[in-house]
Design a protein around this nucleic acid. Structure first.
Lengths: 237, 237
DNA sequence: ATTACTAGCTTCCGAGTAC
DNA sequence: TGTACTCGGAAGCTAGTAA
């Protein structure tokens, strides 16, 4: 963990921006104060502190100073940067849900059986889903809020299609684990659904109810993965 | 610029690491306090402040809270991260020198004329140097310190060689600009040199003394470039 | 167990000003 | 001009403790 004081972060950043990693740069405490949005006196204080801590080196040149960041000073700011970087870039991009298994209306099985969907599922998810969705009734308001949000994130996108009689909407799929059971299921966000935000629909290569022994009324935990890299794009928007 | 208070940076970072960007996470103020190396009370204060600022959302669950970072809160920490990132990754990796042109000992011209060097210069630097080095006497202690350091950084490396009579040392080249004159010169660090750290040797495709009209005794400014990407490797060592 | 209020102390800042 | 000292006040922290 970084030992540098929080108050000195911007001061070091400004010095870095001006090239003080390699050069003794000329900067007055008044200018520095402006850049860090503090008074001249505060900037002067910071420089004294940083010098005492061995994070910067100063050389007198008449009335002014020339300043260079030491290797130690650079390591400190780099370490802080790394901490932030890992927090922002390596966070577990997943959303956890808890709910109880409920009986579907048979609709899931009907849609899963349609060739227009089956082909795409196999191609894009890598498995042919067991015909039928596992419907999970979410047990808390926070899960419902999250349920509403997952659709915003990058997904495996299953296109809608139409046959002779009607059109079928698109489906967004998110890789999902069911804790204590399988790790290659998928959570669905449907263009047209019969459920509200309190229900999460899950598909898997196998029958979850039969093979894992999940029954209606059982409580289960589901971890929905969100694409880590695609995430960044999402946040910039 | 980020509006988030400095004191809250670590608090937000810890929340982020625990997945609070997507989930309402459970964390007690005591645990949070430990992670940010502050008291339980300070952590409690931070959460109150962050909540008021609209950077986090909290839901009561009995005696404890569940916490999620808002979009606004995420933007704030991201903005701070960007500031640091640009300071660390986009700094101008160059070292500035000032000195006066001095007369060489004719040695430079001799070495530049050797086929063993000329071939490599042409191949690796992209130009055949004018036979003769421009010798710059550095005018300040800080430039001599920097002169001693440049050899540590990644360079265009010219291998040494030997002919029938003797061996010749390696040469490290660094892209360099001469302010107000040309921008495709190179500063040299020699394995075996006749000068101490107070002299910088420069080569260029043309005769700097003739074509630019630089004369002995003139004061010149030189900017030596350091490879930006290679830099990171260097710092880890 | 928790969260968070209060009191008191320390750190940090800005203004005035010496040099 | 510059830097940096002193002083008063604000901000932030800890410990004690209420709820």
């Amino acid at each position: 963990m970084s030992e540098i004081k929080l108050q000195h972060i911007f001061t070091m950043t400004v010095l870095l921006c001006r090239g003080a990693q390699f050069n003794f740069i000329e900067i007055t405490t008044a200018d520095l104060g402006k850049d860090i949005k503090r008074s001249q006196q505060a900037a002067s204080r910071h420089l004294l502190d940083l010098e005492n801590a061995g994070y910067i080196e100063r050389l007198r040149k008449g009335q002014t100073f020339r300043i260079k960041i030491t290797n130690r000073g650079y390591s400190e700011i780099e370490s802080l940067y790394s901490t932030l970087k890992s927090a922002l870039e390596s966070t577990p991009f997943s959303i956890d849900f808890e709910g109880t298994v409920v009986s579907g209306m048979g609709e899931g099985a009907y849609y899963m059986a349609l060739e227009g969907y089956r082909k795409q599922f196999k191609e894009k998810l890598g498995f042919e889903p067991y015909p039928g969705t596992l419907n999970v009734k979410l047990i808390d308001q926070i899960f419902m809020n999250a349920r509403r949000e997952i659709g915003k994130y990058p997904s495996v996108f299953i296109n809608g299609f139409s046959d002779n009689t009607r059109t079928y909407g698109w489906v967004k799929c998110y890789k999902a684990d069911i804790k204590g059971a399988i790790n290659n299921a998928a959570a669905l966000v449907l263009e047209r659904t019969h459920y509200d935000d309190s229900t999460l629909e899950i598909i898997a290569p196998i029958s979850l109810k039969e093979s894992i022994g999940i029954q209606n009324g059982d409580k289960i935990s589901i971890k929905v993965q969100i694409d880590n890299n695609a995430q960044k794009k999402c946040q910039i928007l």
